[in-house]
C-alpha cells in the first residue's frame, strides 16, 4: 500500500527528487523492472487466456451434466463414474500406458546405438552434423504423410510382404502387419525415434575422449566402460528424449486412427470420438485423466535426473 501511494505521489511530482526516501537509482531500477514486466506480459496473457483457461475448462466441464447432445453446467460426477466403471474406457487407458511404455522402450533401444555411433564413434564434426541432419530431414515432411507412408509398407500387398515373399521367407502374405497394434508401434517408433537420438547424441558428443581412453588404459573392457562411464554421462540425454517421446506418444491419436484399423483406442482417440458425438463431458474426463498420466510420467522422469544441474 505504501509503495503504491509513493508511486502516485512521484508521478504527480516528478521533480521533487528524493521524496519518500526513494533514491533516483532505485526509481530507475523500478522503471526497468516495469519495462521487463511490460515485455513479458503479452506472452503471459496469451498463455493464460488460450492455454491455462482452456485447460481449466476441461477440468470444469468434466463435472458437467451430459445429456444426449449437450452438456449442462450442473455439477455432477456422473461422467467420472461412467468412465471409471466402464471396462472399455479403462482398457483404453491401459492401452495408452502400454503403448507408451513399449514405444518409449523401443525408441530407446533402437535409438541409443545410433546416438552412440553419431555422438561417440564419429569424431569428425562435419560428418556428425551431416548424420544428424539426415536424421532430422524427415521432419520436414508432414507428420500425417509419414503416418500414411506406413500403409503401403505394411499392407497385405505392401513392400515388406513383397520382399519377404521374393526372398522365400514366407509363402503367403502376412495379414497382421497393417491394421494391428504392431503397425501402431512400428509407426510411432519410426516417427519419434529421432527425439530420442538427438538429446542422447548431444550428451554423448560432450564426453571427453580422454575419459574413455583413461578407462581403457586402466584395463576396463567396453562393457564396463559403457555401464560405468558412457551410460551415466548420457543419462540426462535419455531423460530429455524420454520426456519428448512420452509427451508426444501420450497425446497421440492420429497414428492409431490411421494404422490400427480401429483396433487400438488410445485416450486421444476416445477424446476425438467423444467430441465427434458431442459427448463433451465425457471427452473432458478422458482429457483430465490423460493430463494426470502425463503429469505423473514427467514428474517421475524429472526425479531420475536433476536436469538443471546436468545441463
Amino acid at each position: 500500500m505504501m509503495e503504491i501511494a509513493g508511486e502516485q505521489m512521484r508521478s504527480a511530482a516528478p521533480a521533487m527528487g528524493e521524496d519518500n526516501g526513494v533514491s533516483p537509482a532505485e526509481r530507475r531500477e523500478r522503471q526497468e523492472r516495469r519495462t521487463a514486466l511490460m515485455l513479458i506480459s503479452p506472452g503471459v496473457l496469451w498463455m493464460t487466456l488460450f492455454m491455462v483457461l482452456p485447460m481449466i475448462m476441461v477440468v470444469y466441464v468434466s463435472f458437467w451434466t451430459q445429456t444426449t447432445f449437450t452438456v449442462e453446467p450442473e455439477l455432477t460426477t456422473d461422467s467420472w463414474v461412467r468412465f471409471l466403471t466402464s471396462s472399455t474406457y479403462l482398457a483404453s487407458t491401459w492401452t495408452t500406458v502400454r503403448i507408451w511404455g513399449i514405444v518409449l522402450l523401443s525408441t530407446l533401444l533402437i535409438g541409443y546405438p545410433v546416438a552412440l555411433f553419431i555422438g561417440l564413434m564419429v569424431r569428425n564434426q562435419t560428418l556428425q552434423t551431416a548424420l544428424l541432419v539426415i536424421c532430422v530431414i524427415p521432419f520436414w515432411t508432414s507428420f500425417l504423410i509419414r503416418v500414411i507412408a506406413w500403409r503401403p509398407m505394411l499392407g497385405t500387398e505392401g513392400a515388406i510382404n513383397m520382399i519377404l515373399m521374393k526372398l522365400g521367407i514366407i509363402d503367403t502374405p502376412l495379414t497382421s502387419l497393417l491394421f494391428s497394434e504392431f503397425a501402431v508401434l512400428i509407426g510411432m517408433t519410426q516417427i519419434y525415434c529421432v527425439f530420442m537420438v538427438g538429446p542422447i547424441t548431444f550428451m554423448l558428443s560432450r564426453i571427453e575422449p580422454s575419459i574413455i581412453e583413461a578407462a581403457r588404459d586402466l584395463g576396463a573392457g567396453f562393457g564396463r566402460i559403457f555401464f560405468k562411464v558412457i551410460l551415466p554421462l548420457s543419462l540426462p540425454g535419455v531423460i530429455v528424449g524420454a520426456i519428448f517421446v512420452s509427451v508426444m506418444v501420450l497425446g497421440e491419436f492420429a497414428t492409431a486412427a490411421s494404422l490400427s484399423g480401429r483396433k487400438v483406442n488410445l485416450l486421444g482417440n476416445i477424446i476425438v470420438s467423444q467430441v465427434g458425438s458431442l459427448k463433451w463431458a465425457f471427452a473432458s474426463v478422458a482429457g483430465v485423466i490423460l493430463t494426470a498420466i502425463i503429469a505423473v510420467v514427467i514428474t517421475a522422469l524429472l526425479r531420475v535426473v536433476n536436469l538443471r544441474k546436468e545441463m
Partner: peptide, 24 residues
C-alpha cells in the same frame, strides 16, 4: 513461473488444449 508457463505450451498435448478451447 513465467518460464514454465510458456514452456507448458509445447508440452500440453494438442488434443487437450483443442478440447479446452472448443469447450470455452
Amino acid at each position: 513461473v513465467v518460464f514454465y508457463l510458456v514452456i507448458l505450451g509445447m508440452i500440453v498435448p494438442g488434443v487437450l488444449v483443442g478440447l479446452g478451447m472448443a469447450l470455452l
